[in-house]
Design a protein around this nucleic acid. Structure first.
Lengths: 158, 158
DNA sequence: ACGCTCGGTAGCATTTCGCAACTTAGGCGT
DNA sequence: ACGCCTAAGTTGCGAAATGCTACCGAGCGT
């Protein structure tokens, strides 16, 4: 569709914009699925579609396919997220927030993100460069060139 | 597909998980498109598809259709985002971050979010309940019930 | 009356999706 | 050795979504 659009949103959607990609990533990220059958059973996706999607995700560098051999047991395949795939957690998280808020369901479930060491729950928010959180309603969106990203004060992540 | 899934991510994707919905929202949010032709020209989408998508977005409560009459000028239609539609800015923002990072393009553009009063740029990040930003790599995702959301210390948003 | 723009519809080709059945490959029991 | 089981697909076919192009109808300016 638009894998080479100038807009970064369109480029992202060119990779994960189909009906299944993000759900596969979600299962890998939250449930920890790694194997073909796990994805198939967890998502209820047809096997031909799953095969095609997984191949695409591997080709796009979001997952890595490994053939795994435990002693004595027949070897099997694993699909594990790469860093690029794992970093879609922001998108997954944002979708989860929206769904909880605007399509609530009494027995619904959502992914939550906890900090590895402390176990604290993290949530998504807009923050300014000085680390101050801002409510989305107070923001205006504008279109800017990506190159502007490289500001010296943008390194406070991690 | 899965509009009534227990998973909030799947429910969200049931609404905005097709190839065009998020791009339409993006144009409405960032460029400020409101009219049929604006979306059509801006996205290069076929008019029958656009008509169907807009109708769906209205039906789902993400946009509102208004017929607009300025004095002397022929009336025209406007599609404006509702609060539910505008709050997809988190998803758009997350997709923009991912695209800039993992599908960079020298002449690429992205939506940026600026704080209305101060003009500061805001970006999307995971934060803990004490307002501290956390890198996505340090997070683990778990599946939890939506109802758990209502904890007393979860109210520092806004 | 004529043409222009806007917001669509209608018809048809192409692409993607989904279901079900079949295949391939390794390992296991007997 | 022989058949059976499971994992990971492939294949064939029908259904649905998408895309392209052309056309339509109302409102307005001239």
């Amino acid at each position: 569709m638009s894998e080479d659009s100038t807009c970064s949103v369109a480029r992202s959607l060119g990779v994960v914009g189909d009906r299944w990609a993000l759900l596969i990533i979600r299962d890998a990220l939250i449930i920890g699925s790694t194997r073909f059958q796990e994805f198939r059973d967890g998502l209820g996706i047809a096997s031909n579609i799953l095969a095609k999607r997984l191949a695409l995700l591997v080709e796009e560098g979001l997952m890595e396919r490994r053939t795994y051999q435990e002693s004595g047991v027949r070897s099997h395949d694993e699909y594990v997220l790469t860093e690029a795939g794992r970093s879609l957690s922001l998108v997954i998280g944002a979708l989860a927030v929206w769904g909880r808020t605007h399509r609530p369901k009494s027995d619904g479930t959502s992914p939550r993100f906890t900090v590895d060491e402390s176990g604290l729950t993290a949530r998504l928010a807009f923050v300014t460069s000085d680390g101050q959180e801002v409510a989305p309603e107070r923001l205006s969106a504008v279109r800017t060139a990506d190159a502007i990203d490289h500001r010296p004060d943008d390194r406070r992540v991690g």
